[in-house]
């Protein structure tokens, strides 16, 4: 039963990622695209954790944490760029 739930969840998160890609392509503005990217990396974290459960290993959790750390810095950098036209003042 757990395996079925796992596969259903993976399908749902993948669908969510596809919807984010739709928003990423459609825009219409730059902030929308950054928001879609931001959500996309959170979905990637979810997928990595699910992969770890499927393969019964905790090896991948560090990469999920790494994506969380780097993704946040990236989002802040892009938002700052839109606001000021430069990343660091």
């Amino acid at each position: 039963m757990m395996l079925t739930a796992l596969y259903i969840t993976i399908a749902m998160v993948t669908l969510a990622a596809l919807l984010n890609v739709y928003r990423l392509i459609k825009g219409p503005d730059a902030p929308d695209r950054i928001l879609a990217l931001d959500t996309l990396y959170i979905n990637a974290i979810a997928l990595i954790i699910l992969l770890g459960i499927t393969l019964k290993t905790r090896m991948y959790l560090e990469s999920a944490l790494l994506i969380a750390v780097m993704g946040f810095v990236g989002t802040v950098a892009m938002a700052k760029y839109l606001k000021r036209g430069s990343v660091i003042e």
Binding site: M1, M2, T4, A5, L6, I8, T9, I10, A11, M12, V13, L15, A16, A17, L19, N20, Y22, R23, L35, A36, T39, N43, A46, L50
Partner: peptide
């Protein structure tokens, strides 16, 4: 418990993406 949590997580992630779209 694990199955329920997984499904809840999947549903919320999907709803967030539907909202975004």
């Amino acid at each position: 418990a694990i199955s329920a949590m997984l499904i809840i997580g999947g549903v919320f992630t999907l709803i967030g993406a539907i909202g975004l779209a």
